[in-house]
């Protein structure tokens, strides 16, 4: 049934979202401007703290890019392990994938933060501290890794068996077949879901703030605290935070959807 009725995604033009971003900001401003002088100070406070919040957002970007890089490399390896003909490789890989695909991000993040030691001893005897944000990055990469592995497995399975057979008849080794025949055909199929996972990963990075990492959310909360922890800060500050993420993620979503549609039309 899945293949008969592919679930398509609406086409929404770029204008709507642009309007939305403006809407987000506007609502922040109106919320602030509702009544007199006291609220205006909330906006002033926000403007003062914007550079600090954006600095935190830089860490979100760094974590998301690093985590995605780790997840992609590890996920591809894990994906290939899953389709290995050797059960001793295949089964642990499946178990590993299953574990990280079905656990919440928060739980995985906790596990890494609390179970990985805060410093490691190098073979030479030097002690190296692992900063929290690196641990969080690893925590974020694990669920994405498991899903990249699953995407790869799905893409490989979708290549017609005739491709394997013809490569085999040309005396390609298994590695050569994967490297030169199968993988190049998979990449196109994998790109849109891969990008979706990048977007999702980026949206999850503020969870690092729970564990004290100074990302955009951490900095926003710190800024509100430093400015006097007034309740009227809450709405504009959080709205601003949502807007930053929206402005960064929305173009990625749009582009991913375009790719999906183009690939769907092409096949």
């Amino acid at each position: 049934m899945k293949t008969l009725f592919p679930l398509t995604i609406t086409k929404i033009t770029w204008r709507a979202p642009l309007a939305l971003a403006v809407l987000c900001l506007l609502s922040a401003v109106t919320a602030i401007a509702q009544d007199g002088t006291e609220r205006v100070s909330a906006l002033d406070t926000l403007i003062v703290w914007i550079p600090f919040i954006l600095e935190g957002f830089g860490l979100n970007l760094l974590m998301s890019i690093l985590a995605m890089a780790i997840a992609t490399v590890a996920g591809v390896v894990l994906g290939f392990m899953q389709i290995s003909p050797i059960a001793a490789i295949r089964l642990p890989a499946k178990l590993f994938t299953h574990l990280f695909r079905n656990s919440p991000w928060l739980v995985i993040l906790f596990a890494i933060m609390l179970l990985v030691p805060f410093q490691i001893t190098l073979p030479g005897g030097d002690k190296v501290l692992i900063p929290d944000w690196i641990k969080a990055t690893i925590g974020f990469s694990l669920p994405v890794m498991a899903n990249v592995a699953e995407i790869l497995r799905g893409a490989v399975m979708s290549i017609p068996s005739g491709q394997w057979e013809s490569a085999e008849s040309l005396a390609f080794s298994r590695y050569q077949t994967l490297r030169y025949i199968i993988l190049p055909q998979c990449i196109r199929r994998m790109l849109p879901p891969w990008m979706n996972w990048y977007a999702l990963l980026t949206l999850m990075t503020p969870m690092a703030a729970i564990l004290g990492v100074g990302d955009a959310l951490g900095h926003t909360q710190a800024a509100m605290e430093a400015a006097g922890a007034k309740p009227e800060f809450l709405i504009p500050f959080y709205l601003f935070l949502m807007t930053i993420f929206f402005v960064f993620i929305y173009p990625i979503s749009i582009y991913t959807r375009r790719l999906e549609r183009r690939f769907a039309a092409g096949s």
Binding site: I12, P17, L203, M204, I210, F245, F246, I249
Partner: peptide, 14 residues
């Protein structure tokens, strides 16, 4: 679009 493209944790805090 707003809820799919902003962090769920920030939505919750908001």
């Amino acid at each position: 679009e707003i809820f799919r493209n902003t962090p769920p944790i920030v939505q919750l805090l908001f």
